[in-house]
């Protein structure tokens, strides 16, 4: 146990110690007012490493400290900034894809295409008698002959342009009619196909 005298002396010495944190706080506040922020510190370090960019605010400030002539040249450096064009993105050609080779159109082909279009239209309109039998026979005979001649001459291509051009039933009807017209049986067609490899 300590004497009351010593206690008073302790409290006397303790009072200024109580005031200290407040003083320290105000001192810290004052320091903080002067202390640059984290962003300012980062900008300062950046400027230290990279140097001051010409035309920037920092360049103007430092030039103003150096003198009026330096300030003028700093302003002049800032002026052409707007004129410098942005770097254009790099264009690289990845690939060139050519379209289908154009086929020379003969006048006969053009007329045949027009006729085919006309016949399709009559069919769509339901005018089944538009093409009379003798015209159909002449057309069918000419088509058979020319397709066969082209095939013999190694000008081979699919007889129809696509799967949707005609139905399977259409083909069977026409093939059956053609075979009947020349008095051939399906068996004979099969034999010829196996012999000729076609």
């Amino acid at each position: 146990m300590s004497s009351p005298k010593t206690q008073t002396s302790k409290s006397a010495t303790a009072r200024p110690a109580l005031k200290k944190p407040a003083a320290a706080k105000s001192a810290r506040k004052a320091e903080a007012a002067v202390e640059p922020t984290r962003a300012e510190k980062a900008a300062f370090l950046k400027a230290m490493v990279q140097g001051i960019k010409p035309g920037s605010k920092a360049a103007e400030k430092s030039a103003a400290r150096k003198g009026p002539e330096a300030a003028k040249s700093a302003k002049a450096a800032k002026a052409p900034k707007a004129e410098t064009p942005a770097a254009a993105p790099k264009v690289e050609v990845l690939r060139r894809i050519s379209g289908a080779a154009s086929i020379p159109v003969t006048p006969e082909s053009e007329r045949a295409l027009a006729l085919a279009k006309e016949l399709e239209a009559t069919l769509a309109d339901g005018k089944l008698d538009a093409l009379q039998p003798h015209a159909m026979q002449a057309l069918m005979a000419a088509l058979c002959k020319i397709y066969s001649a082209q095939d013999e001459a190694d000008m081979r291509y699919p007889v129809l342009s696509g799967r949707g051009a005609v139905t399977g039933t259409d083909v069977m009807i026409v093939c059956g009619a053609l075979l009947r017209a020349v008095d051939l049986q399906v068996f004979e067609l099969g034999m010829w196909q196996s012999w000729s490899g076609r």
Binding site: A88, P89, K90, V91, E92, V93, L94, R95, R96, I97, S98, G99, A100
Partner: peptide
Amino acid sequence: AEQFVAKASEFQNGDRQIIRVGEDEIGIFK
């Protein structure tokens, strides 16, 4: 910005060209 693709005289109907501009890939058809 306008990016050059090809000469029009060399770009036929049905042709295509694939180019890269920056991070984009663009297909140009005629």
